[in-house]
Computed example of a mutant assay.
Amino acid sequence: MPAVFAVLTAGLMAFHRAVPNSAGRLGSLLEAFLPWLGLVVVVLLVLTLLRRSASALMALLLPVVAWMHLFGGLLLPGPEPGPHDLVVVQHNVSDENTDPAGTARALADADPDLIALEELVPPTLAVYAQTLAPNYPYHAVRGTVGLWSKHPLTGARLVDIKPQDIKESWSRGLRTVVHTPHGDIVAYVAHLPSVRVRASGLASSHRDESAGLLGEAIAAEELKPVLLLGDLNGTVDDRGLAPLTSRMNTAERGFAFSFPTGFPMARIDQVMARSATVRQIRTMSPTGSDHLPVTARIALG
């Protein structure tokens, strides 16, 4: 029996794109937690050792190889920082955060070039702006998303990523140009709609629609390079984010599971790049949010 489950687990990992999304978006649900199939391998290894089954042990090599092919590279140490690297921080600060000043100080202590924030609401927005101002004199906010920068910003504007059937006020996309010492880059900050896991499967239609709109905006972007920072409510393996992941690079190193804070199970806070490389991503210490902040190193040029 362990041998059968080993083959099935390997098949799910190797051919996860073949799992249909038509019923309950089961494919996206599997992909959201794909790295955790490694735990199945551990359980099967224990059962195999207890049974002392040579055939099951051989079969277990299949999911091990599949997992290492998909995720093994993320475990490798990142390269040394280069002269044209940019450090960024991405954080959904939570609209229920009771310590916005402490959160802002914790993010600034990492000394990044850029800080992208989501769920900015009055009156905490003013607290973030005031606390970050000494080290980040440039910032742009549209709706509930914002970007703070050590370098000048120009051309900040709203990016409309609101799904059609959301009628209330909803503004979660920002685009601006960052004038860095290494050249201009375009930065997008976005907060895609939440998804819900229900008995019927994954409810992600709003998130998928919003990802499509954001992907179209980035595809039409003429300037290079382009950075995307945001709470995308999906992992980079989730096909619902394909309009973005098909156009942009994702982190070469690091898992950086960011949600939920108490027991992080997935990285839904993302840093992506076009015409640049996301060398490494990692989580930071908890703040007053239900998300962990993530910081990433971007290689330009």
Rank of each mutant, 00 (worst) to 15 (best):
N135F: 06
Y136G: 01
Y138E: 12
H139D: 11
V141G: 06
V141N: 06
R142W: 08
G143K: 10
T144L: 10
T144E: 13
T144D: 12
V145W: 12
G146N: 09
G146L: 10
G146S: 12
G146C: 13
G146W: 10
L147H: 14
L147F: 15
L147G: 07
W148E: 05
W148G: 05
W148I: 09
W148D: 08
S149L: 08
S149A: 14
S149R: 12
S149D: 13
H151T: 09
H151Q: 15
P152Q: 13
P152R: 14
L153H: 11
L153K: 08
T154C: 12
T154W: 09
T154S: 15
G155S: 11
R157W: 02
L158M: 13
V159N: 01
D160N: 13
D160V: 04
D160Q: 07
K162W: 03
P163W: 00
P163C: 05
D165A: 07
D165C: 01
I166K: 07
I166G: 03
I166P: 00
K167Y: 08
E168W: 05
E168K: 11
E168P: 02
E168I: 15
S169H: 09
S169A: 14
S169Y: 05
W170I: 13
S171M: 09
S171R: 14
S171N: 10
S171D: 14
S171G: 02
S171Q: 15
R172Y: 01
R172E: 07
R172S: 04
R172W: 01
R175L: 14
R175C: 05
V177Y: 00
V177K: 03
V177T: 06
V177M: 04
V178P: 03
V178D: 08
H179M: 07
H179G: 05
H179F: 02
H179S: 10
T180N: 10
T180I: 02
T180Q: 04
T180W: 06
T180L: 04
P181T: 11
P181C: 06
P181I: 10
H182M: 06
G183N: 15
G183S: 10
G183V: 10
D184E: 15
I185T: 05
V186H: 03
V186T: 15
Y188M: 13
Y188D: 09
V189K: 12
V189C: 15
A190W: 02
S194Y: 10
S194C: 05
S194K: 14
S194T: 14
V195Y: 00
V195M: 00
V195A: 05
V195T: 14
R196P: 00
V197G: 03
R198H: 11
R198T: 09
S200N: 11
S200C: 03
G201E: 07
G201C: 08
L202E: 00
L202W: 01
A203D: 14
S204W: 01
S205F: 03
S205H: 12
H206E: 08
H206V: 02
R207M: 05
R207L: 02
D208Y: 03
E209R: 02
S210E: 00
S210K: 03
S210L: 03
A211T: 01
A211E: 02
G212K: 02
G212R: 04
G212T: 02
G212E: 04
L213Y: 05
L214N: 01
G215N: 06
E216N: 09
A217E: 11
I218E: 04
I218D: 03
I218N: 00
A219Q: 13
A219Y: 06
E221N: 06
E222D: 15
E222P: 00
L223F: 08
L223N: 11
L223H: 13
